[in-house]
Design a protein around this nucleic acid. Structure first.
Lengths: 331, 331
DNA sequence: CTGTTAGCGCCTTCAC
DNA sequence: GTGAAGGCGCTAACAG
């Protein structure tokens, strides 16, 4: 593969000049630039990103850690960020943390070794202390769905508590009083937040959270299915699931056991996965604007780390909005 | 950030020795190794992947191009490959080609500039000539879902024709004779293959493909929905959709228009997306073993490119298998 | 076993 | 405007 030296020989100039042309320096006379470009064409030369990064101290690489690359919501985050970064010739590299502190840390260290210019982290298991240390080593860090003392400007957050309250209020407004809750794993902050929003809304309307109507799931369809099976005998009029995937599982359980949704029981999800509109009945849920959040994180970095001039300051705090479909009906 | 030189000074040895220790060379006496490791610890030293790549001519990076990072099947491919590569300390970087020749080429060039050791390509729009050229520049290329003359050993394929035949045969075995087909965009090879498998199976059973019962969709839910609307009046007893997403759309249409599935019309999908089991009725479909295929591609590269000793030669040619659920019933 | 010497391909001062 | 020289951090011969 041709190097900058080959090009310089072919064009009869010095490597430095080739470098200037390639980097758009204005200090090159038109005639030379043409000569150089011709040589580049002729040799099919491609600059070596690695060498460029070494010499300039800037890799043009951004690392991103998500819990699971193949979960729909995380894939969306990755996809949106990648597309936008690539428009600016920046490479996004993704790694998964699997909600495990060791694996999250390993992923981050891995990315750091690649000398990423910046990091976008959606990590849930790793402790604050580590992240605080990290911020000292690498200033360009954006956190998704997590807040950290002293880093407000670098956190793209979703108001899980508020979203959950809105959802619960919608249930209550529809006349539901006996509302069950299938939670995500309480080891996760967002699961805790969504739960507390639920309970806050209940309290606000003079209802109390019955421990028997609560089950801790795992954010998967299977967890939702099993959660529903535990709640089935409690004569509840509505079930709020901590995410859509569990709602899908709950719906599957109901169908298999001839529990009519929404006639016998209303079901509410959270996330508004693409698929939510294709369940039967179509799922009423809260919208998690993952795409917008990924773009916000990306734009923030484009501005602060790459000094690319993007008009407006991206919104960093997001609120889920209610998506009304068919799985919740008035009681 | 500490460099190998800092470590060598701190340990009182040469940089080369530090390098040896870090790379597990056996030519280092235990005492030195301990000294070095202590220095590494003390300084919190992390080798610079970029520099290492430059010096060794091996980046430890594999690039992967998929059509869309956020499509479920492609996210799965990425996720599985990433997980397996990372076990071997190899970084996978993903890019999306969006089924557009220019974008696919751009993605590949981008990856090439990062000096990836190998490439896993799921590209559909780019022409054979380009890939053949590419194979000359970079020997370690694995193609997913595409065959290329002279590169059989590096293609992980799915038998779309055969899978489609199996599916169609299942429909026919269930007494269906008036079978509609909602196809993927015929610009894509897999869409064409699936269609021709369908028609071959029809012919094999003495049936002919009615042009009026065929509609070209776009592999999305919306496309399936619209396709179904076109076919709704044709009195068909079964509809075969080119992929699950279109089947989801078709199911949605039926539900909205009170067409009972499978009583009035059976619906068959293709891919077996995770969600297929959560539709109503649960979707009968063909399994696209994306995870296994990603792992096959990864293992192939681990063997051929990284000389990592993995017991068995991975299977490179996959056949979809029938997944019977509830959306297809005997006529 | 360990240190020394060269680069890997590029960018970036500094002179000219 | 352009060229020469040095160095980014590391590995890979080659000596010893």
């Amino acid at each position: 593969m041709a190097t900058i030296k080959d090009v310089s020989k072919h064009a009869g100039v010095s490597p430095a000049t080739v470098s200037r042309v390639l980097n758009g320096s204005e200090l090159v006379v038109e005639k030379t630039r043409v000569k150089v470009m011709a040589a580049v064409e002729a040799l099919g030369y491609r600059p070596n990103t690695l060498a460029r990064a070494m010499a300039s101290g800037r890799s043009g690489i951004v690392g991103m850690v998500v819990p699971e690359m193949c979960s729909p919501i995380h894939a969306r985050l990755l996809g949106e960020a990648e597309a936008l970064f690539r428009q600016h010739k920046i490479q996004l590299i993704g790694a998964s943390g699997h909600c495990d502190p060791a694996q999250e840390q390993e992923a981050i260290e891995f990315l750091l070794q690649c000398r990423c210019d910046a990091l976008i982290l959606m990590v849930e298991a790793i402790d604050d202390g580590y992240l605080q240390q990290l911020a000292k080593r690498q200033a360009n860090v954006v956190l998704i769905n997590r807040t950290l003392a002293g880093f407000d400007a670098q956190c793209v957050t979703l108001d899980n508590v508020g979203g959950s309250q809105t959802a619960t209020a919608h249930l209550i407004a529809n006349g539901h009083q006996r509302i069950g809750y299938i939670s995500g794993p309480l080891a996760k902050q967002d699961a805790r937040d969504r739960r507390s929003g639920f309970e806050a809304a209940l309290a606000q309307h003079g209802l109390t959270a019955e421990p028997d109507w609560f089950v801790e799931g795992d954010f998967t369809e299977t967890g939702g299915y099993e959660g529903m099976s535990e709640l089935a005998s409690a004569q509840l009029s509505a079930i709020f699931c901590g995410n859509d995937e569990m709602a899908f599982g709950a719906l599957a359980y109901c169908r298999e056991h001839n529990i009519a949704v929404p006639e016998q029981v209303s079901i509410m999800g959270f996330d508004d996965l693409h698929f939510a509109r294709y369940t039967f009945p179509a799922l009423t849920t809260m919208d998690f604007p993952a795409g917008a959040m990924a773009i916000a994180a990306t734009r923030h970095l484009l501005r602060t780390c790459y000094q690319i001039d993007i008009p407006a300051q991206p919104e960093m705090a997001y609120k889920p909005s209610l998506v009304v479909r068919d799985s919740v009906q008035p009681r």
